[in-house]
Design a protein around this nucleic acid. Structure first.
Length: 486
RNA sequence: GGGUUGGUAGCUCAAUGGUAGAGCAGCGCCCUUUUAAGGCGUUGGUUGAGGGUUCGAGUCCCUCCCAACCCA
């Protein structure tokens, strides 16, 4: 409060607030019926219509006895024309107490100005909410990344391109749900607080339930619960919600992120690959209107173009490795290590063979793959929850979908042999291991149908489809270190 | 955790170690079809925080905080 009274801009707005109250106007008004949102009226514009709309004042062009303002919300903007003759001196005195940022309801008739702008000629206005702080620069918007992320509302108000990205993300999620429901998948909700954080190998967030006196973990994946539902008789299920991983924060990682997992009884990883291919193309067409996605830099130059045209490439994991180092699988561990050091792929001494190979894959295949690529038959150590290949038990029947240099989606033929599943979970090796969920193994013993399963990182999918380079740009409120003293 | 870059007015940005500036916003005046409206005038700063060097620090040095990017 002290800080506020020191700032002239805030003090002036508070003076106007008081003046509104003195004039008998409630600066924080009540419900206001409209005939449409600003953007909708503009999009379906017709002249000489009586309309009521409401929005935030985002621009003010003062011509003396007449004024133009823009009213905006997430639907867009609509210009309103106000003049002293129509509104009267009393109303104009109230109007003088308004600022950019205030919420205003207006009633009037639509017309087109002589410059061709669809407008509403106001016959009355209603103060809906006073803004006590000035908005960011009307032309440049918010550029400071810290403000964009910490005060996302300011980013949404002043940067239309940010609003557009989030509208697209929302549409992507909606279209995925629609797509799956159209194909008979049922959306379910499974625990986010789990006694054993299973289904993936990642550090969990720990919490405590007081009444039960037990530690619980925020889920790192819903997989083991969705498979219990396959046991329970659901044959097509999905869950589209948050996972939590207590790991690093980066351009590609947020501690909480959105994941789609879907399971289809009696299907396999190849059928799931088909499904994902169809789904991503459906989403791209409905949300972006194209299968050609351009990623541009801040100057508007195209950095890369992603072509989602079907069919997508499917290639064996080992063939991709051989594409990089033809005699990779004929080499000894030490020879592989030596190759990595020569080629600037970081390896450590505690890493096992499959991990070294995986590093080569990530650096020299994954990061360089822009167009969709299904990488099939990965080493079994990487995927303990998938069925082993009958012809080659060292690999599993899975795909890993790579687009835009990132893993977007894994798909498995799900392992449903309880004994093999126990063994695979108990004999995991390497850096990452999963905990044993005994009840999950019990469920498998009751019998789980063969099934295909997929996961899709929704944030990364949204990044790919909207052309942004940071996961923070597709998450409304990305995690930041709390600011001390505030 | 390590490295690089940055933090200056409400916002967007300037400023060889030598009086902290501009545009927008704000405030005042003019203007009844503008749209980054225009014209004239004008207010606004503990330069992220704290130390140090110096006659003098936004600028150089140290510590810390926050952020972005790269690496682990």
């Amino acid at each position: 409060m002290e800080e506020q009274s020191q700032n002239e801009l805030l003090a002036i707005r508070r003076q106007k607030l008081d003046a509104l109250r003195t004039a008998g106007i409630d600066p924080f008004g009540k419900a206001y019926e409209t005939t449409g949102a600003p953007g909708h009226i503009r999009a379906a514009f017709a002249e000489a219509q009586q309309v009521r709309t409401a929005g935030r004042i985002t621009a003010h062009r003062n011509m003396g006895k007449s004024h133009f303002i823009d009213l905006s919300d997430s639907t867009g903007r609509m210009q309103v024309y106000l003049n002293a003759k129509d509104l009267g001196a009393e109303a104009m005195a109230i109007f003088d107490l308004l600022d950019i940022g205030d919420f205003l309801g207006i009633e009037g008739e639509t017309f087109v100005t002589k410059t061709g702008e669809p407008s509403i000629k106001a016959t009355s206005f209603t103060v809906l909410s006073k803004s006590l702080r000035p908005l960011p620069d009307k032309w440049h918007g918010v550029q400071d990344t810290e403000i964009k992320y910490r005060q996302r509302y300011l980013d949404l108000i002043s940067n239309p391109e940010s609003m557009e990205v989030f509208q697209k993300r929302i549409a992507i999620v909606r279209e995925i749900r629609r797509f799956l429901e159209d194909r008979g998948f049922i959306e379910v909700e499974t625990p986010m607080m789990q006694a054993v954080p299973g289904g993936a190998a990642a550090a969990p967030f720990k919490t405590h339930h007081n009444a039960l006196g037990v530690d619980l973990y925020l889920r790192i994946a819903p997989e083991l619960y969705l498979k219990r539902l396959l046991v329970g008789g659901f044959s097509k299920v999905f869950e589209l919600n948050r996972n939590f991983r207590n790991e690093g924060i980066s351009r590609r990682h947020n501690p909480e992120f959105t994941m789609l997992e879907a399971y289809w009884a009696c299907a396999d990883f190849e059928k799931m690959a088909e499904l994902v291919e169809e789904m991503v193309c459906h989403v791209a067409m409905t949300v972006c209107g194209t299968l050609t996605i351009e990623h541009k830099n801040s100057e508007g130059q195209v950095l890369r173009t992603i072509d989602l045209t079907r069919p997508w490439r499917r290639t064996d994991y080992s063939d991709l490795i051989r594409g990089v180092v033809p005699d990779w699988y004929e080499r000894t561990t030490e020879q592989r290590r030596a190759w990595c050091i020569e080629n600037h792929v970081d390896v450590t001494h505690c890493q096992e063979d499959f991990e070294i190979t995986q590093h080569v894959f990530e650096k020299l295949v994954e990061e360089k793959t822009i167009n969709p690529l299904f990488v099939t038959h990965c080493p079994k150590e990487l995927v303990p929850l998938a069925k082993q290949n009958t012809g080659n038990p060292s690999v599993v029947d899975v795909y890993e979908l790579v687009i835009n240099g990132q893993e977007i989606s894994p798909g498995y033929s799900e392992l449903n042999d309880p004994d093999v599943q126990r063994q695979r979970l108990e004999h995991q090796s390497g850096e990452e291991t999963q905990k044993l969920d005994e009840d999950f193994l019990t469920a498998l013993e009751y019998g789980m149908p063969p099934a295909g399963g997929i996961g899709i990182g929704i944030d990364r999918l949204a990044m790919m489809l909207t052309g942004v380079e940071s996961i923070r740009d597709v998450i409304l409120f990305p995690h930041m270190r709390p600011k001390s003293g505030t």
